[in-house]
């Protein structure tokens, strides 16, 4: 169940409490997120929508341990990440987060196979174990036959599939998708969303996704709206979201 009122039962996979983020630009303070609460259970698929500058990506960065909040806490699977040191956070990311970016961000000089293998190079898996994992991930995204292709030899949709394979290869606790279809045509976007839905439904993945596209957002179990750093509404109340946003 997804809640934004800070009244979760404490057993959620992701618990966000009183999360604020302020940037200082010149002499001016810009409050991007204001005392957010969020509870996301395992297997949930949440979409974040909102206009540019509303803090969607900032929230995603904070949840992924790429940035640190000004105030508040984030607990993932029992680990409070907001007070972790930089190096601890890096290790935590490797174990718990799978990133899917809008621009794919594949390494152009590595093949699809090598790109997907990258997160596994940080583990103690042997070469043959890594191969097994990479082949499984590529088969999930339907690109086994393209594993030796370089990104430039793949279409945009295929590149995003490789990114998804890279994100799931180490079996992370949750996936963070930042505009995963933002650079794709409608057909490819549909295919990617179908794949993400399959990851949630079939493989039990927890997905948090930022998007501008209402069609894409509608594929999520729940859509939360961020406006000027505040969670102002939840679209699928029937799923159990409690509206509000500011605790």
């Amino acid at each position: 169940m997804i809640r934004v009122d800070g009244q979760g039962n404490g057993k959620s996979l992701i618990q966000v409490r009183g999360l604020s983020k302020t940037y200082r630009r010149g002499g001016e303070e810009i409050q991007v997120l204001q005392r957010l609460n969020l509870d996301v259970d395992k297997g949930d698929f949440v979409g974040f929508m909102g206009p540019s500058g509303s803090g969607k990506t900032t929230l995603l960065n904070l949840l992924g341990g790429l940035d640190v909040p000004t105030q508040g806490s984030i607990t993932v699977d029992g680990d409070e990440i907001t007070h972790m040191s930089g190096s601890k956070l890096t290790k935590w990311r490797a174990r718990h987060v799978g990133f899917i970016f809008q621009m794919y961000n594949l390494i152009p000089v590595l093949t699809a196979y090598q790109n997907v293998e990258l997160p596994l190079l940080l583990t103690k898996l042997s070469g043959s174990e890594r191969r097994k994992h990479v082949e499984t991930a590529l088969s999930v995204v339907g690109l086994t036959d393209r594993m030796n292709h370089y990104p430039r030899q793949l279409s945009g949709g295929q590149e995003q599939r490789v990114t998804i394979a890279r994100a799931i290869v180490s079996d992370p606790t949750f996936l963070l998708c930042d505009e995963p279809t933002g650079d794709l045509d409608r057909k490819s976007a549909d295919e990617i969303m179908a794949l993400i839905e399959e990851l949630v439904a079939k493989h039990g993945k927890t997905v948090l996704m930022v998007t501008h596209d209402p069609v894409v957002a509608a594929r999520a179990h729940t859509t939360l709206h961020l406006e000027k750093g505040v969670l102002v509404e939840a679209s699928k109340v029937e799923q159990g979201v409690v509206a509000g946003g500011v605790a």
Binding site: L66, M103, L122
Partner: peptide, 14 residues
């Protein structure tokens, strides 16, 4: 820059 950022994001240490 972007590639290095992605590497850091997926857990490659400094």
């Amino acid at each position: 820059t972007a590639e290095l950022a992605v590497l850091k994001a997926i857990g490659v240490t400094d």
